[in-house]
């Protein structure tokens, strides 16, 4: 079902991770992913796994939501694993045709799969604990140096577009589902047939969806005008992002983990 897509679905809670500054979270996510990809032995990888699992636990987001995001990426994960099996050195375990699976290959495959899994879990931890709006604000704020090169209104426009897109994605998904059901009730066949037929079968869904989106856009523009919106000129924000003591603590923990990964890499 379309509504099972959890894209941009914030999970309400008040965990430490939820309350960490979204700008910091965004920057840390990028940094941690880099370091996790640098981890090259069992110990440093073990530390990464331990760390990501702790983040998930601290986030208070149900594990099944994390696993759900995992499910979508599963084919990619398996494919990566299989490809990596054949690229390795070391003792040959199985060989057929021109391919051989080695101990090194298995090692590589496992590592790659663990890395991707951690990457998904960490990014999910960010999106589940940060409201789409906070995320947008974080990106706006992180991009704000661009205003010095004369892109101030471009940054605001981009952020506004993201806010509205995130707000309307669930609404439009719901609407698409309603229209699909209505056309199915009129006997439309959306599941069977050749590719060309199936593409054609989308017309009765896309046209009403488009018309309703245009109507929504028009009404939203009027509503925004009524709320004194004039392109972001002179606009202030209610939520000012301040780095708090706990943000330094979070930063410190992450720094220790990154340091740990490098140390373990070098020492063993």
């Amino acid at each position: 079902m379309l509504k099972d897509i959890t894209f941009g679905q914030y999970y309400e809670s008040r965990s430490l991770i939820h309350r960490t500054d979204p700008r910091l979270k965004t920057v840390l996510l990028i940094a941690l992913i880099v370091f996790i990809f640098l981890a090259k032995n069992a110990l440093s990888m073990g530390l990464s796994v331990l760390f990501v699992l702790s983040v998930m636990a601290v986030s208070k987001v149900p594990v099944k939501l994390y696993l759900k995001n995992m499910k979508a990426i599963l084919p990619v994960l398996i494919f990566t694993g299989i490809i990596n099996l054949f690229y390795g050195e070391g003792e040959t375990l199985v060989s057929f045709w021109k391919l051989e699976i080695t101990t090194g290959g298995i090692y590589r495959a496992v590592f790659m799969m663990v890395r991707i899994t951690l990457l998904i879990f960490l990014s999910s931890a960010l999106t589940y604990t940060t409201t789409p709006n906070d995320l947008t604000d974080a990106i706006e704020s992180l991009l704000s140096p661009l205003r010095f090169v004369g892109l101030k209104s471009a940054v605001h426009t981009l952020a506004m577009m993201m806010t509205i897109a995130l707000r309307f994605i669930p609404t439009l998904i719901e609407e698409a589902e309603k229209i699909m059901n209505a056309q199915k009730a009129r006997g439309a066949d959306l599941e069977n047939g050749k590719l060309t037929e199936r593409v054609k079968a989308l017309i009765p869904i896309l046209i009403p969806l488009l018309i309703s989106s245009v109507r929504r856009a028009y009404e939203l523009a009027e509503a925004m005008e009524c709320r004194c919106y004039n392109g972001g000129e002179g606009r202030t924000r209610m939520k000012q992002m301040h780095i708090k003591p706990r943000d330094f603590a979070v930063l410190a923990v992450c720094a220790v983990v990154c340091g740990g990964i490098i140390t373990l890499n070098i020492m063993f």
Binding site: E219, L220, A223, K239
Partner: peptide, 22 residues
């Protein structure tokens, strides 16, 4: 549905006063 701009209730309510530059 077509009047709510933000994905969090209080952030949406803040939209107007934010535009007023308070």
């Amino acid at each position: 549905d077509n009047q709510i701009i933000a994905s969090i209730v209080e952030e949406d309510v803040a939209f107007g006063p934010e535009n007023l530059g308070l």
